[in-house]
Design a protein around this nucleic acid. Structure first.
Lengths: 141, 141
DNA sequence: TTCTATGCAAAATCTTTGCAATTAG
DNA sequence: CTAATTGCAAAGATTTTGCATAGAA
């Protein structure tokens, strides 16, 4: 994403092979990936040797610039996905059997969250929602 | 909680000092605690030497029996709190400034979650919701 | 007695940091 | 040239496991 490179440059960061590879890979992804998954995928693509530490550094920096959103599915592994430029965001359904993650959006849910924050007089900056259950495929099996 | 001991016994578990201490401590708590916090509190109470590993084993077992709910606030530390016997459950507001955690319940939110699961044909078994923002006190400061 | 629970220490996981070499600007 | 970036290895932090002992039923 050009937008990412622009934000990085404006924040005084230089361009680097490892970080560029991470940005490119995540930009092509549809849902969240863990640092290890990013590392493995980059290796699989064989582009270049990217260190795992560089992946962690990249996602950490990008998340700090709000170019990535950190997603925590409760399995002690941090995942990251690109932030929607529109401000839109989705949440995740995790299947307890197959482990697959599927994104979803729901306006009513967002509204309920906003109302809770307001009622409690919290200035909400973000929220995480994870639904756990069995996906249609695993229920059939 | 007697209920916990009953469930444990029925599941074929014996009574042990470490686990009893964990059950007792969490029963007296109002909100979630991490394994390390439980360990430290037990040491502070000086009751007995409880190993950190035993705390982890206890909360893991108790969560598996649904006597405790695992709470993930996104800081890479798992926390645990007693499950309400009524089936009621709450979620958490985390202040980005002071770090304090406050529980809340909201029927509309629960309904929205149930509807999302239904629309996606997921058999929902659980869900986590964490709201992040600034609490009234920190906003005033 | 039999088998679970426990404590300690070692191991496993995930993530961060130190450092020298590389490289962008 | 100057300073940020990177890869590797070592260090940290949290959680799990191995194993011998203690203890419940």
């Amino acid at each position: 994403m050009d937008h990412s490179h622009e934000v990085l440059a404006r924040a005084g960061h230089r361009s680097g092979a490892a970080r560029n590879a991470v940005i490119d890979l995540l930009g092509r992804q549809e849902c969240c990936l863990s640092a290890q998954e990013i590392y493995d995928l980059l290796r699989a693509e064989g582009e270049r040797t990217v260190g795992l530490a560089s992946v962690y550094r990249a996602v950490d920096l990008l998340a700090g610039l709000e170019l990535l959103q950190r997603v925590d599915l409760g399995d002690d592994v941090a995942r990251y996905e690109p932030t929607e430029p529109t401000g839109a965001h989705h949440h995740h359904l995790v299947c307890l059997d197959c482990g697959r993650v599927r994104p979803f959006e729901d306006a009513r849910l967002e509204r309920a969250l906003a109302e809770v924050a307001e009622a409690q007089r919290y200035a909400m900056e973000g929220h995480d929602v994870v639904l756990r259950g069995r996906c249609p495929v695993c229920q059939a099996a």
